[in-house]
Design a protein around this nucleic acid. Structure first.
Length: 477
DNA sequence: ATGTCC
């Protein structure tokens, strides 16, 4: 059945301005899109009209987009929804108003389908940390976060917990020898299949980061990242890992995609902000249409950064397994800064952004760390639709880094850590246990979202120290 | 988070 032809009147009704764009649209629709339904043509044109810059380089729609841009229509900021889409907040009493305000703005984006705020939420850039946002065919780089693929990984060993107390110094040395933080790096980084990914030769920004990625693989970075030995305890037979309930010497790591992910995030956020003009309060939520070239590139690069972050964790755990002279019995891992293609309750595809949120689909395993003096939790998701199959990604910050440095005393923090029986390498006041919310409260506020399968009690902890952070370090490798 | 604005 031949489709109806679009006429100038139809295009003006769509919002096309007088001028050359109408002619271009009619020409393109009658060539490349000939035979497509009138609805399809209109929806394509609407997309170009809403955001011509995204389509400027498009093979067929490019000329329409260019004409629209010349007509200056692209200078008009995109309209936000008048009313926000309703969303669920878990543990509202523990969440700072700034984070809620950011979520309210995100819920007014025209591409937003649904959202949820986790109990560890605090203010971030664009979407709050602890924010979950589902969109339609659009990806928001700052909805994923700067550290793309930031994630947790835990391995459990057939070694009794007493080993920690008997070998604390050896474990400390294992961490010093086998992990790298801040600007420090391994002299001989290990190779990994992720470095053979063809995207390192295909996407310019990724190409420029190959060298950095090679040098930094297997390292942990800074900030709240850590690698630690501790005691994992499995509490239930129903743990998806085939482990008997009991205590196991374990390794827990928290880190992301290092310079690779940070630079990918920066590059595509800038691109999105140039392309999607939004009112200033929402500018950091600029998105890329997944049908656009930039959107598809970001999606591929984001997935590469996710694989790279995973590879870094695997190398950390491989090195430590070798040092322990054991093979792990089980491994649990999850991203908590990422975007996924998932389905909503009606079966429609949605893009789910979790920025500091743990995937918690039905039966999905994850790790929610506490702090260096409080336990982390091995969890199994309950698949709650209102939370968009998500949970918190940790205790969440209670205090800013600046406030921590001003208000906490080194001596007190040191005493607190010693009293808790923790051996600590590195870290600073801004990562003191006191800057985090009470993990037990956070877990209580999300008991509808996850089941606790086990716990992890940190014992020997390594974080980034002041010297590594500044690049003043002794290479020991 | 990030050689913390090439």
């Amino acid at each position: 059945m031949a489709s109806k032809k679009l006429i100038g009147k139809d295009l003006k009704k769509l919002g096309f301005p007088e001028g050359r764009a109408i002619g271009e649209a009619m020409r393109v629709m009658e060539s490349a899109y000939k035979g497509k339904s009138i609805l399809h043509k209109k929806s394509m044109l609407k997309k170009v009209l809403e955001n011509p810059a995204l389509y400027a380089k498009h093979e067929t729609l490019g000329p329409i987009a260019t004409a629209l841009m010349i007509s200056k229509i692209s200078n008009k900021p995109l309209e936000m929804r008048q009313k926000r889409i309703p969303y669920s907040i878990y543990g509202v009493e523990g969440i700072e108003p700034g984070a809620i305000n950011q979520m309210e703005i995100a819920m007014r984006l025209p591409v937003t389908k649904s959202g949820a705020l986790m109990p560890d939420a605090h203010q971030g850039y664009g979407l709050p940390i602890g924010g979950v946002l589902a969109t339609e065919n659009a990806v928001i780089p700052y909805g994923v976060g700067v550290d793309i693929g930031c994630r947790m990984c835990m391995t459990l060993y057939d070694i009794p917990p007493a080993y920690v107390h008997q070998n604390t110094e050896e474990l400390e040395k294992m961490l010093l020898d086998n992990t790298r933080f801040g600007q420090s790096a391994f002299k001989r980084p290990k190779d990994h299949a992720v470095l053979d990914n063809s995207l390192f030769g295909e996407i310019n920004i990724v190409k420029s980061l190959k060298d950095k990625a090679w040098k930094q693989i297997g390292s942990s970075g800074g900030g709240n990242h850590f690698v630690e030995f501790g005691i994992g305890e499995i509490l239930t037979e129903d743990n998806e890992m085939g482990l008997s309930p009991g205590k196991y010497l374990s390794v827990l790591s928290h880190s992301g995609s290092r310079g690779l992910g940070a630079n990918i995030a920066r590059h595509y956020t800038k691109l999105a902000m140039d392309m999607t003009k939004l009112p200033s309060e929402a500018k950091h939520l600029a998105w890329l249409d997944l049908d656009s070239e930039a959107g598809q590139e970001y999606w591929l690069a984001m997935n590469l950064a996710g694989d790279y972050a995973s590879a870094c964790h695997h190398q950390i755990h491989e090195r430590l397994a070798k040092a322990l002279g054991e093979r792990p019995l089980a491994m649990v891992e999850n991203h908590h800064n990422f975007a996924w293609k998932e389905q909503d309750a009606d079966g429609n595809e949605i893009i789910v952004h979790r920025k500091g949120a743990t995937p918690a689909g039905d039966g999905v395993m994850g790790i929610i760390p506490g702090s260096m003096t409080s336990p982390g939790f091995i969890v199994k998701g309950k698949g709650v639709n209102e939370s968009i199959n998500s949970a918190a990604h940790g205790a969440g910050r209670l205090m800013s880094r600046t406030k921590a440095k001003q208000s906490l005393s080194k001596k007190e923090v040191k005493q607190h850590i010693k009293k808790a029986g923790i051996t600590l390498i590195g870290s600073g006041l801004d990562e003191a246990p006191q800057v985090y919310k009470d993990i037990y409260e956070v877990m209580d506020r999300q008991k509808d979202l996850v089941d606790v399968v086990g716990t992890f009690q940190p014992k020997v902890v390594r974080m980034c120290g002041a010297n590594e952070a500044k690049g003043k370090y002794q290479e020991v490798d």
